[in-house]
Structure formats: structure tokens, C-alpha cells
Nucleic acid binder design. Structure first.
Lengths: 230, 230
DNA sequence: CGGGGGCTTGAGGCCACTCAACGATAGTGG
DNA sequence: CCACTATCGTTGAGTGGCCTCAAGCCCCCG
């Protein structure tokens, strides 16, 4: 792990409320902060999971690699998201800062000890795991059974939900990252976005291709999952 | 949900030990049994998650559907496996008995109440969720970044681990089920298995194509994941 | 024996990948 | 300030892996 202590790490113990976990007896946990530079690794797959993280600002991606370089990104973590929570083993993904990113982190063991005595904390951990599981399960369907347009549309809708401010979605990740999240190639992602743009579903802002306005969210979603009744 | 009460449902309360959960204060939970016929639905996606199940005998598949019939199987549940555990919401998969299957089941609410007072139960729930998550995460990489031969090889190795007895692996699922698990078509799965057979990696037993002997597990695994160093 | 489902195999097509070229932007160093 | 380079993104042309469509075999079950 790329350990880089910052002065912030000397910050006073904070309540778990920063992590969205509030408790009855209200014990406290030492919450520290780190800032990672763009592209730096927060932890690697297979390393011991000593800490649990929450994105304060920036963006993080979690991925697995094959020996020949093929990469599958499992999730993008945006401000407020908690990541790196494993239960009984090492990290199963590599986590990397996509842009300069500040994270809060707490000791995993401490959290587990708290969970043993505090029902609220235990439930919170279950909640986090459960929502992770839910997201990954939906992604299974996307990777296994949806075509390129459906995948890209689903991605844009997801990101539109999660990081649009003032009507503009500012993507922190490259087209390659998107491709590795969607199980596609850069070219295919680019073609899909171009197609949506030409159809008037998207609009670009500024001189990068990362600031996007979703013009017709409804119609974009039509390309997406189309889940069955049940 | 396809509710079919059996006489077994009147069985006496049993300890959670049946679920692999043993506790200190040792309270008991009512554990009942159901038998589902081949092809019948145990619960549907979106239905309230009132029970948690464990396969006693048989096999179950969990899947999601798209409106046009495309299907993605998330997992096969074999004897001993626990499935249907959701934390705070409805079922996210449809579960269906692949063959005649007997399951044990317990009330989810009861389990949650126990978890609130019993650390061992709470940890057990986290363990189950965690292993589910781990399996699905590995499957993401397979669906997103592996080719057809790698997928089928990985499937055969997984099943070889989980249900081989006397050196013979007896698959309960059809080629279509395998295809929907691997994000492929029936034909592609069949071609891959034929190829492995012709190369001497597999052998068929009996007059069905579901009883398979893995002749060279090592070489078969070479087609598989090939995870990176870390 | 006839019908149906499961499985395999072949032939052809298409969608996404591969390979390549190009423009735009940002960073670097003279 | 201007090359020079590297990265990112887009677009075009062609390929290939998996899908689609089709046929046929086998087994089971009536």
C-alpha cells in the first residue's frame, strides 16, 4: 500500500457519523484523512484489509486484473461512498484514485469490535455490504446480457444520478475507465456516446469531453436495462 | 411466491446449527423444510424477502430477467449453500429449483432479531453476505473480460470443486442454464465443451451429457482466469 | 412409434474488437 | 514563445468471435 501520511492524520477522533453511522451509546472512532494524487493506488488486490474508506472528495475506482492486462472495474466510488470494506479476508480489488482524492478512513478491526457491542454499527456494516452486493448483481446482468448501447446508456444514467450538479455531469474517469467498467473497448464507448450525441440525447460543455449534459434522460434510459416485471 | 406447504413444515424447531450458525446463548429458531419440484419457483425477483433458505438436497439457480427474455444467472446453489438472504429489501433475484430440491428455511425477521442480540449470528450473516459478494465479484471479471473458452473452463473447474463425487461431476443444469450463467449461448457452451473433450481434458460417463469426468484439471484451469499478481 | 426437449454441429451474419490515422489538449523543456 | 511529446478522444476500415439460424441425433416418455 502506498502510504503517505498527511498532517490531517493527526486530526482528533471523530464520531462515526462521518461514515453515516450513528450509534446509541455513541462511542467514538479515530477517523483520519488521506489525500491521494491522481492515479495513485490506495490498496492492492490481495493486500490485508486494515482500513475502511470513505470518499470525501474526488473519485476512486476498484478493479481486478488478469495477468495479460485485461481489467475489469467493479465500481466507481464517489464522494460519500464507502469502499474497501471486507469481512474476513484481504482486499479483493485494487483501489486507485482517479483524480486527486481525499478519503476518510477508520481501522477495520476497531469497527468490527464496535459492531460486536453495538447493534447499530453491525447493521450499518450489513447495509454497506448489502448495497455493494446489490450494485454488483445489477452489473452482472449488464455485463452478461446487454449490448454496447445499453451498457453505455446505463452508465450515463447511473452517473447522471450520482454526480450531476447544475445540470452538468462532470465525469472524472477516462473513456478507457468507462470501457473497463462496461466490459467494452474505448472505441465502442466512444461510438456509443457519439451516437447519443448525434441523436440529441447528450450535449457537451466546455472543451473537454467529460462535461456532459443529459438532454433526454427518459429516452436515454430506454436504451438501458428494461428489467422484466419480476 | 409459489407456496406449497409440505408435511415437513411441521417439523420441530431446530437450532440454527443447520444453517452453519452456532451461538453462545444458544437460542433456537424454527427451521422448516420444503420440497420444490424441478422447475418450480422458490421466490421471484421483487418479492418480499421473508425467508432465508439453505439447500438440503438438489440444486437452485438465482437469475435476473430482461423484458425481452434475456436471462442472467447469478449463482447456482448446491447442497449446503445459503441463498435468499437480503438485508433491507425485496429479493433481487428469482430463485428456481433446477431439479427436485429440498430446502430448509428460517424466518428472516427472526434471524435479524437474533443478530441484534447475538454477535455470533450477526457475524454469520456478514460471512454469508461477504462470500456472496466475493463470488459475484469474481463473476464480474469473467463476464466482462474473459472469452468463451475461459468462461466454460472456469465453470467446469468451479463445478468440479463443488459437486464431484467419486471423480464424476454430475451437472444438474442444462447447457442453457450454463450459457445464461456465463453470458454465452447454448451453442457456444456446447462447442467449448466439445473442444475440451476432443483435447482429452474431459470424459463423459453414462448416456447423458451431464456426467463428466475432468481428466486434466490443471490444463483446464490454464484456460481459466489467470489472475494477475495483485 | 411419434413427439418433444436437450445437445451437437455446420453455415453464415453481425456486433464489437482490432488496427490505424488524426485532431485536440496539456505538460515539458528549450 | 514554440516545438516536442504523451495522453485522450474520435472516426474509419477491416477482421473475427460469438451469435443466429438450421438441421440432425439421442434419449425419454407418452
Amino acid at each position: 500500500m502506498y502510504v503517505r501520511l498527511t498532517t490531517n492524520s493527526a486530526s482528533p477522533p471523530a464520531s462515526l457519523g462521518d461514515f453515516g453511522i450513528t450509534s446509541g451509546p455513541s462511542p467514538t472512532v479515530s477517523v483520519s484523512e488521506f489525500t491521494y494524487r491522481m492515479g495513485s493506488e490506495i490498496y492492492g488486490e490481495g493486500e490485508p484489509a486494515d482500513y475502511v474508506y470513505q470518499v470525501k472528495s474526488g473519485a476512486v475506482q476498484s478493479y481486478k486484473l488478469l495477468s495479460d492486462g485485461r481489467r475489469q472495474i467493479g465500481a466507481f466510488h464517489l464522494p460519500g461512498d464507502i469502499f474497501g470494506l471486507e469481512h474476513g479476508g484481504p482486499h479483493r480489488f485494487t483501489a486507485e484514485a482517479i483524480v486527486d482524492t481525499t478519503v476518510r478512513f477508520v481501522n477495520r478491526k476497531t469497527l468490527e469490535i464496535m459492531a460486536d457491542s453495538d447493534v447499530v454499527v453491525a447493521r450499518a456494516l450489513l447495509n454497506i455490504m448489502s448495497s455493494n452486493l446489490s450494485h454488483v448483481e445489477d452489473h452482472l446482468l449488464l455485463l452478461g446480457r446487454q449490448n454496447s448501447l445499453e451498457r453505455v446508456a446505463a452508465f450515463l444514467v447511473e452517473m447522471d444520478d450520482r454526480l450531476t450538479a447544475n445540470g452538468v455531469m462532470e465525469l472524472p474517469m477516462t473513456r478507457r475507465d468507462i470501457a473497463d467498467y462496461l466490459g467494452l473497448t474505448v472505441e465502442t464507448v466512444s461510438r456509443a456516446i457519439s451516437k447519443f450525441y448525434k441523436e440529441g440525447l447528450l450535449e457537451f460543455v466546455g472543451n473537454t469531453q467529460r462535461e456532459i449534459v443529459v438532454r433526454n434522460r427518459q429516452q436515454l434510459a430506454m436504451f438501458g436495462p428494461k428489467k422484466a416485471a419480476g
